[in-house]
Every structure is written in C-alpha cells, then in structure tokens.
Computed example of a mutant assay.
Amino acid sequence: MSTLKLTRCDGTALIERHVLGMAEMGYHGISEQWLKRRAGDLHWRLIARAMGQRDAVFTCSEGEPLYAAFCATSLQLKRPHLPRLGGEMTLAADLFRVGHGRLASLLRITVGCDIVGGMILVSTFVGRSEPGSNRSVVRRSPRALAMPPEAPLAVRRFAEKASATAQDIRDDRLKLSGMSGTQKVLPCPATEFNAAGLLYFPSYSALADRALFQAGERQTNMVASRYVVYLGNVEPGEWLDINFRKLPSGHDVLLHGPDSRPLALMRVRFDRAS
C-alpha cells in the first residue's frame, strides 16, 4: 500500500466572469453544454489547487495518468430566462469532500445581483487498467489527496443518493417502467470525446437531447434542471442505445452502450414559464 500525501486547501472560491456571446448562449437561453464545460474546468482547477498543483494534470503514485471523472452532476436553473445575449454572468465554485475518494464542487450562477441557479458536481479519480481502453476505466488514488472542507448537507445528500442509484442500476435492482422505444446514436470523437479519449460528461446530455429530438420530442422550453448519474464510458465508434420516459414536465432518460452496459441515467425538467 502506498502512502499518500494529504494536502489541505483554503476553501476560497474560484470565480469567473463572462460576457455572454454566441459561444455561451444556446437556442433557448444559456448553453447547457458551455455551462457544463466551464463548471467542469472550475472543478478540476479547484482540485489541482487543493493539491498544491498549478495544472489540473493528475497521476497516481506510479506516475500513470489519472482523471477526475464525474460520478454525478445536478444542474438547477431557477431563473433560466435571465441570461441574455450581451449580458454578464458570474460563476463561483467551491470544493468539498463527500466521503472516501470523492470530491464535490458547488457552483453558484449569478447574473448581476440575481441568482440564476447552481450546479453540484461529484467526481472520483479513475485510470485505465489497459492502455487506450475506455472499458478498462477503474477507480485509482492520486499521488496526493486533496482535503477540502466537508460538504454541506445538501451536497452530501445528493452525492449519497447518486451513489445509491448507481449501485441499484449496476445490481439490476432499479426497474424503470414505461420506457419507450430505443433510439440509436453514434457519438463523434471530434466533438463528443475529450482530450483523455473519454466520452466527455456534457456529451451525455447532448446525446440524450439528440435522441429525444430524433424521436419527435420537439421541446422548446428552457431546461430548468438536469440530474445525471454517470455509470460508464464507451470507445469511439460504439453506438449508444437511448430510452426515455415522457413525464408532464420533462423526461427520464437511460443510456446504454454495447452489450446493454448502463452508461448514464438522467432526469431533465423544463421551465414551464418559458
């Protein structure tokens, strides 16, 4: 067993201010893809700072590459109509611990003095047991462990619920009734995989939305919330099977890879006022 260096951080938030242009805005309001990419980058930078590193590049004690992979994310947009083209948005993120081997960031989203919403992102460190194989991704410990403050109760509850849901799916204890026919989607490496060669976490939501649109779900309201539990990854060139269940204010969506491997479960809700 290797001895890991413990590094404490001061808990100070990382803050970004953005002028909202075409890159930041989407078809209806703020771009969820852009927002998740920024939130993920803040999360990784917070971990690097907590470990005393300048760059968000992580390795295990043997020097092999590690990645801070997301276990679950929760996006809540209480006032999705506030972000406007040409306006300004502030993102402020803090890092916390949520149990052995997991870290969580809490992101606050504001426009001017108004709170738009927030995100919770929970991650753990993973590496590949076989070079180049996304199916061989397993949990591993980094060279240095970050020791930020304990997470607030709401963040801990979210992390615990997500962990329990993931275990129920893996153990085939979670039975989802009312799921409709399967839509097949093929992720494109040039746009939906990241620099680590893994299917990027915002891409799960984008692929689910694409499948819903293919199935005839012409949703025009803004996203009010999206809760995602991540369960696995795929290789470039592998197809995804996406099932969904329509609900009064949104959808439940289940993503599978080849051999019916569960990849993600998500619940998306739309803003009725928009």
Rank of each mutant, 00 (worst) to 15 (best):
D10F: 04
V228D: 01
S136E: 14
S163I: 04
T7R: 15
L42F: 07
A159F: 13
H43I: 08
P152W: 14
S74E: 11
L212M: 08
A93S: 15
C60F: 00
P189T: 02
A154W: 14
A13H: 08
H18S: 05
E64I: 05
P202V: 03
W34A: 01
P65I: 05
F213N: 08
S123P: 00
A72T: 06
C113I: 00
G112P: 11
G178E: 13
W239R: 11
L66M: 07
A48N: 14
V229M: 03
T110H: 11
G127M: 08
I47Q: 02
R102V: 08
E88Q: 13
R128T: 01
K78C: 02
R37V: 02
F158H: 15
V57L: 10
L4M: 09
R17Q: 12
G29F: 10
S123G: 08
I30G: 02
R49L: 12
V19A: 07
R97W: 08
G117K: 10
S203F: 11
W239F: 02
L121M: 14
E32N: 15
L265G: 01
L103R: 05
R49E: 14
S129V: 02
T182M: 11
P152T: 10
T165F: 09
K184G: 00
D172M: 07
R54P: 01
G250S: 07
G101I: 12
L247G: 03
V126L: 03
S177M: 05
S136P: 05
F201R: 12
G257L: 13
R49W: 05
L46T: 02
G86D: 04
H43V: 08
M179R: 03
R173G: 10
R218G: 00
D259S: 13
F201W: 02
A154E: 09
L35N: 06
L95Y: 06
N134R: 10
P83A: 07
T7Q: 15
I169L: 13
R245P: 01
P236I: 05
I242L: 05
G118R: 09
N243C: 15
L176E: 09
I47K: 04
S105R: 06
A144I: 10
T7Y: 03
S180D: 13
R45G: 04
S2W: 13
